[in-house]
């Protein structure tokens, strides 16, 4: 049984007929070819699939696409304006906040909400605020530095 689902993805209105068991992340990756949103686990811990749903960071592997009916979705592909990196993305590059890059889109999406809530975050706030995202490469050290620098840059 197909269900018609409509939402806005990175500013573009999209509609599709979906099996209700389609996850939001599958919809983005397989139907919209937005493969920047990754899947790293099946129990909702790793956060590699983090996107914004109506402005809130959520795990797209833990939401049915039909639950996003009518929602505004922002993925990593929609963060940079044109080819210029967003200040948070630039901060990740400048501070070597990524290695293999697999967790990175989810980290950046989480960091964007973190900074919206805490415009001037301490190291402790950042570490606590990244609790929904796992990284196996960086030991988080440079991610913390990147988020702090990204926050400062976003104020400018």
């Amino acid at each position: 049984m197909g269900i018609t689902v409509s939402m806005t993805v990175n500013g573009q209105a999209v509609t599709a007929e979906l099996d209700p068991r389609t996850l939001l992340v599958q919809f983005l990756r397989e139907y919209r070819q937005l493969t920047g949103t990754h899947v790293g686990c099946d129990t909702g811990q790793c956060g590699a699939c983090t996107v914004h749903l109506d402005g809130r960071a959520v795990k797209a592997c833990n939401i049915l696409a039909v639950q996003a009916q009518g929602a505004q979705i922002l993925t990593i592909e929609g963060v940079a304006a044109n080819s210029e990196l967003h200040p948070m993305q630039a901060a990740f590059r400048d501070h070597h906040g990524l290695q293999c890059g697999f967790c990175t889109p989810g980290m950046v999406m989480n960091a964007l909400e973190l900074v919206r809530k805490h415009p001037d975050p301490s190291e402790e706030t950042i570490r606590a605020g990244l609790d929904g995202n796992l990284c196996r490469c960086t030991g988080y050290h440079n991610i913390v530095k990147a988020v702090q620098a990204g926050a400062a840059a976003m104020k400018r």
């Binding site: 920047g36 940079a80 590059r93 990524l98 293999c100 890059g101 697999f102």
Partner: peptide, 10 residues
């Protein structure tokens, strides 16, 4: 390599 990873283009 970072640009492609940061923009979801990996």
């Amino acid at each position: 390599e970072d640009y492609r990873f940061l923009t979801g283009s990996g």
